[in-house]
Design a protein around this nucleic acid. Sequence first.
DNA 1: CTTAAAATTAGGAATTATTCCTAATTTCGT
DNA 2: ACGAAATTAGGAATAATTCCTAATTTTAAG
Lengths: 130, 130
Amino acid sequence: MNNYSKQREAILDVMKQNREHPTAEEIYTLVLEKEPQISKSTVYRNINILVELGEIKKLNMAVGPDRYDYLYQEHSHAICEKCGSIFDFYDVFNKDKLSNELLKQIENNMDINSITIYGICENCKSKNKK
Amino acid sequence: MNNYSKQREAILDVMKQNREHPTAEEIYTLVLEKEPQISKSTVYRNINILVELGEIKKLNMAVGPDRYDYLYQEHSHAICEKCGSIFDFYDVFNKDKLSNELLKQIENNMDINSITIYGICENCKSKNKK
DNA sequence: CTTAAAATTAGGAATTATTCCTAATTTCGT
DNA sequence: ACGAAATTAGGAATAATTCCTAATTTTAAG
């Protein structure tokens, strides 16, 4: 794994130019513009490889399919479990401290990749009150 | 939504007695012991209702199907993105403070339901070095 | 206790999301 | 330039979940 292919490069380009946390399906549609012959399995396979390589990040959604994020800057996500909205935010968690606390509590020296907040956004809260 | 049914009660019972974060499939298998006639769609539907009612929590996995957790005590989860191991841990995040920070940054007054750490566990780290 | 409306069910079909398979092509190291 | 290794397109297969329908159960009101 790691030979050059224009397909993989096109996928990475799409991710670099897109900060909307696209789904695999959306990535596929976007990459079709540059690579009209690309197949969906190639998109899925390369998405997984890029995650593996640490170039993009996988967001585990509460609703709907997984989403992906190019790592333009270290940040965290807050995800609405009702409507699936994603909010980016910065500088809240001290990973070293967390990592240490984790080590103490679970006795496992995990590498922390990301921290995600799940909840209900303002909009969905007000909808439910009706 | 919210009429009594022995099926829903049986599902909740399974969740109360199981702290292994079962998948929907596993819940289905377990509940079959008490309700041999229950159908998978009833299990899925009721799981969603119980999440909605706040009786159980949905864990958005990095690998494999979603998992569920009875809310016996407030706690957070650390999930290995490679093998899917789940670690429970306690008392690390100050939700009020976080909620406030979120409000400032994203200008959305989200209700925080849970905070999940995603990473790579010790075991998977050492496997990769080989 | 009836009774009617509302909620829930079983069972299976349908849908969605993702992975797997294969033969052909491309890339890479020498 | 050549052979091994990696990658591809295309489609089949699988996994996870939701949707549909007619029958049954629950609830609330009389």
